[in-house]
């Protein structure tokens, strides 16, 4: 009899403990940070200006407003350029995840000695980077682009984050952006 009483008291103690645990719910738990307020590159914008005709400006975009995972990218333009022409290229990185669009390009520029933009293509197009960081190494936010013959291919742009290791090589660091645009030289 006495034993069962003690048993009951132990169980009661435990029940009490569990109830005490349950009763409080921290404000911090209920209010998680909004992940949309986090900085994200969602959009790459390439602006090609014809060197011979400054009114010939074309803009091509790749946009994935909800970042990696989630929904598929919403815009994937094909780059269309004229054959045997010279262009100047300006690149912009944007955060379009919320209604007020943020320009990340400025940040890349500020931390230019940690960043490198790399270009590769298989369409006989030459890309020469025209901007340099404080150490005299390429950045790649602006470049001169020269097309040759009419051809279809891929034009890949990659933003590399290379803190402490930047030496001009594209092999190092971590890729923050990598977009392969379809390229049509007409």
């Amino acid at each position: 009899m006495k034993q069962s009483k003690t048993n009951i008291s132990i169980l009661a103690f435990l029940a009490l403990g569990v109830i005490t645990f349950s009763s409080c719910k921290d404000d911090e738990v209920v209010n998680p940070p909004n992940p949309n307020e986090e900085e994200l590159i969602t959009t790459v914008e390439l602006v090609f200006t014809n060197a011979a005709d400054s009114s010939d400006v074309s803009t091509f975009k790749f946009a994935d407003p909800d970042g990696e995972g989630g929904n598929a990218p919403t815009q994937q333009d094909t780059i269309r350029l004229a054959q045997a022409s010279n262009y100047t290229l300006a690149v912009r990185f944007l955060d379009e995840s919320s209604s007020d669009v943020e320009d990340i390009t400025e940040e890349v520029k500020e931390e230019a000695e940690e960043h490198l933009i790399c270009y590769t293509n298989d369409a006989s197009t030459t890309v020469i980077i025209s901007d340099k960081d404080v150490n005299g190494l390429n950045i790649g936010l602006s470049a001169d682009v020269e097309t040759s013959v009419a051809v279809n291919g891929t034009f890949t742009i990659a933003l590399k984050h290379q803190p402490d290791v930047k030496d001009g090589s594209c092999d190092l660091g971590e890729t923050d952006v990598e977009v392969a645009f379809a390229l049509e030289v007409e």
């Binding site: 132990i10 921290d26 738990v29 209920v30 940070p33 986090e38």
Partner: peptide
């Protein structure tokens, strides 16, 4: 014997798992 547990997780910065409160018995 018996066990009771209360656990809560709070995150800041990048989302990885949600905030939660868990009770176990």
């Amino acid at each position: 014997g018996a066990q009771g547990e209360q656990q809560q997780n709070i995150f800041q910065g990048r989302y990885f798992i949600p905030n939660y409160q868990r009770h176990k018995t």
